[in-house]
Each structure stands twice: as C-alpha cells, then as structure tokens.
Design a protein around this nucleic acid. Structure first.
Length: 442
RNA sequence: CGGGGCAUGGCGCAGUCUGGUAGCGCACCUGCUUUGGGAGCAGGGGGUCGCAAGUUCGAAUCUUGCUGCCCCGACCA
C-alpha cells in the first residue's frame, strides 16, 4: 500500500479523553475513532490488526476441532425469556422494539441462540460432542465504558459453545479450549496466565480467566513466576489425546486475581523469589456450566439406551477487539506501538527519504515490488514529507521492519533496515536487506 | 447509579472572574528556500464558542434548564 493513497490520519498530540497508553496510541496512530461512549469506528490500520487477531483466533479454534458459524447480532427476546435471563440480565442488555412491537435485543452473548439451534437440530447422542463458535459483535450497555476499546460497549468477541453427553466429556471439551487459548495468546505475542475464576451469573462450577500481564492492566494478579516462563503447547499438540497433563501443569501452580487471592496460601505455596504481583488484563474466559441452559430450554438427545439426556455445556470467550488494546499495553515504547510480527497491520515500512528523486524512487519501487512478491504486506511511504516526520510516524504505528532508502545511502549502493522492536539497524545492499527480512520473518 | 471534572476550527489549548462581535501552537492549502530523526519565510482557508431559553443596546463570557464526553467507585470478553 502506498501511503500517498492510504487513509492514515495520525495525530501528533494525545487526545485528552484518552487515559491509558493503548487508547492514546490507537487514536494517535489512526486506528480508531470514537463514535459515542464505548462505541468505535475501526479505521483501516486498526481494522487490519483486528482482522489479523481474528484470523489467529479462528485458526486455533479450528485446530482444536471447534466449528465456525455466524449468529446474528439482534436476537428475539423470547429465547431469553425461556432461559430466564431476560429479566436477570438487567440494564446491561440493550433492548429494542421493532416496528411490529416485537421485543428484540442486541446480543450480549449467545448461549440462548446456540442452544435453540442445537435443540432443534440435534436429537441423537451420535451427534455429540460438538463445539460451535462464531466471531461476532456484541453489545453490553456497560454502566461506565472506559479505556477506549478495552472496555467498550460494542466489542468483537469469539464465543464458542460445547455440547457433550456427560460431565466427564464436557471436561474434555473444556480442556481443548483451555489448550487452544494458551496457544492463541502465545501466537499473538502475549504472555497469558490461566487463573481460577468465579463463574458469576453464567453459572457452573469450572471456570478460568486468561490474564495477560501488562503494567496498565485493570486487575491486580498474583502468581508463580514459573507460569510466566512456561510456554504453550506446540502446534502439533494432539487435541484428541488426553490433555489433562497439560491442564495440570498450568493449574497446579498458584495464580489468582485480586478477588480470589489468598495471601496466606500465596506465601505458603510460592517461594519468595517466585512470587509475582502484577497487573493484568482479562482477554479470555472459559466456563463449564453443565445444564443451566439446556435444562431451561429443554435441549436433550437420546442416549444409546433410548433415554433422553440433557446436554452438558460450556462456553468460551475471547475478547478479540480488547486484544488489540491488550497487545499494545504489553508492547509499546516511548515512540509508539511495537507490534508483534503476527498481528502487525503491515510487515514492512518502506521509507522513501526523497520522493520524486529518480534514483530513490526507482530503488523503492524495486524493493516494494520484491517485498510484495515475497508475500509481505508493505506500507510504502512515497509522500514528500520530511524524513523526521516519516520516521516518527512509522515508529508510532510500529511496523516490525523499516526499510529506509535515501539518495545518500544509494550512492554507496546501500539502504538501511531497522527492527522496530529492538531499534537495531543495519546498512546493507538492497538485495541483502531483502534477504535479511525474508530470512528472519516467516 | 453515587462522587468529581470538561465542552471554543481536525488535534492540543488561551480568552470566561471584570460582557464590546474570537485568538495561539500543530495539522491543512499556495509559493519560495530547504531536505537522512517532527525546517524557515511569506501568503491563505476553515469556528452557529455543545444545545435551548433568559438578562442586556450588545453574550464564548452573566442566569436557568438540558445534552454529550472524560475520570474515581461497584460489574463485565
């Protein structure tokens, strides 16, 4: 993409409404604009990041055996009356009336919707287990939205729903999601730690929050340092095998959010040099809640013996739009965002230091073509801004690589490449620069 | 929902106390000079001062009502 033809409205100063760093940087880098409290437009740069994260979430859900679908944002009130949550959910649910005076709502979550579909479609134990998910916008009319997209009212969430014949099998489904989440967050360049959590109003008795450590996080968390240093299961993890050992490895060490923190246990179970007290952001939450909705909504199948069995369920959420902010919170410096390679909106920033200079333009055009042929997304700054402004803007938007091309270097047959994450720079021939980037990024 | 604050061009702000017809920096447009880490000079465009009512010869400024947004607290991906 040529910057001269792109839409990237960068701000030089922090808008005063932004309090935390990710919100400031997202506004300044032209990723989002606020529409009203807790509701945002995603500008082209932000949209690219959102889609990259969404894709990684999707790939890991698919790998675990979950099946993608799409449910609507607007739901009928009736199914919520059936589950009993229409009254319970309170003012957080945005209620809408259509022209025929039918009660509708903008979905804050989709347990009712998926349970209705499953109930009407599945009658036999032979069709279990299944895990269905979608990635769809949600609306929760928060009392106080804040921190930009970190706690918006409208947000993009991946929500998965598992259906099993027995609690034991539901536990297997739960474990698959647990492992898929570990892998997802690691691929996104984040250190996430599963922590035992309250099940809250969703109900059930098995639940974990996935917390990303970040200085500006909202929750105070405590854990064993070993958990931070642990790495997620590899790509070849067999989701059909018994995942219990992996789960145990991650749940045997101490980890708790402020609400669940037990200082005495912490002191007793965690060696002093391993005690971590930090800030964290909740990016995922998984629940096993059994038959809470299937009971209320009469979702049953016939077992092998012909008897009706109420289906055991779990639900599993990842805040996709929140992750954009969480990644920035975890990865930035004084000059701007530092995108982890897998979620960067573009892979390479190509900076032409003297646009309209024949030799510089030609060298840039050549590199632009070759990088794109090699499969890279390139943001090519072909504008005739001054060098300083270009450097500042590219540092702000945080693309992993910068390729800097100017007449001075070209006279020596050289260009400069800079790694955004380390600030490390090298002066090389254009061919060597190309090879360096192709070789180090996969 | 309780408490606090803010609202003046795209962004950041001054002007409000003490009423006199709107200003600064950045950004934007034109020209010239510059050009490797946010250039200089000259010229220029853009604002119903959140909305409504009131007081007044006259309101960004005073009064009343409303709305929007932000921050702190309890809840949430």
């Amino acid at each position: 993409m040529r910057l001269s033809q792109y839409f990237l409205p960068i701000l030089r100063e922090d808008p005063k409404e932004a309090e935390i760093v990710s919100h400031k940087l997202m506004l300044r880098a032209g990723m989002i604009r606020q529409s009203s409290a807790g509701i945002y437009s995603w500008l082209p740069l932000g949209f690219r990041v959102l889609k990259k994260i969404e894709q990684i979430v999707r790939e890991e859900q698919n790998r675990s055996g979950a099946i993608e679908m799409l449910m609507p944002t607007i739901q009928p009130a009736d199914i919520w009356r059936e589950s009993g949550r229409y009254e319970d959910y309170g003012k957080e649910m945005l209620r809408i009336t259509d022209r025929h005076e039918r009660d509708m709502l903008y979905g804050p979550t989709n347990e009712e919707q998926i349970t209705e579909i499953f109930r009407d479609s599945v009658k036999s134990y032979r069709d279990l287990p299944r895990n269905l998910y979608h990635i769809q916008w949600k609306f929760r009319d928060e009392i106080r939205p804040r921190f930009g997209i970190m706690r918006g009212r409208e947000f993009l969430m991946k929500d998965a729903y598992s259906f099993d014949l027995s609690p034991e099998e539901a536990r297997v489904s739960y474990n698959k999601m647990f492992v898929a989440y570990l892998r997802t967050f690691e691929r996104l360049g984040l250190k996430s730690i599963p922590m035992a959590a309250d099940t809250g109003p969703i109900g059930g008795d098995l639940s974990h929050e996935f917390i990303v450590l970040a200085d500006t996080g909202e929750s105070q968390v405590y854990c064993d340092r070993d958990l931070i240093e642990g790495s997620a299961p590899a790509e070849d993890v067999d989701f059909e095998s018994d995942l219990t050992p992996i789960i145990e490895k991650w749940t045997s060490k101490y980890a708790a959010t402020d609400e669940k923190h037990d200082p005495e246990r912490f002191e007793k179970e965690v060696a002093a040099d391993k005690q971590v007290s930090a800030r964290g952001i909740e990016v995922g939450h998984i629940f096993y809640f059994g038959t809470k909705y299937t009971d209320a909504m009469n979702c049953r199948v016939q077992g092998p013996d012909g008897k009706l069995v109420t289906i055991e369920c779990g639900s599993y959420g990842i805040g996709v739009s929140r992750l954009v902010g969480a990644i920035i919170e975890a990865s930035h410096d004084e000059n701007g965002i530092v995108w982890p390679d897998p979620v960067a909106p573009f892979d390479v920033a190509l900076i032409n230091l003297k646009a309209n200079d024949e030799a510089t333009d030609a060298a840039c055009d050549d590199l632009y073509g070759k990088l794109r042929e090699a499969g890279f997304d390139v943001l090519y700054d072909d504008t005739d801004e001054r060098a300083g402004g270009k450097f500042a803007a590219m540092d702000l938007i945080g693309l992993p690589w910068q390729v800097i091309v100017g007449p001075r270097g070209l006279k020596q047959g050289e260009v400069e490449i800079k790694r955004r994450s380390t600030g490390e720079r090298e002066t090389l021939t254009p061919e060597a620069a190309l090879n360096r980037i192709v070789g180090r990024t996969t």
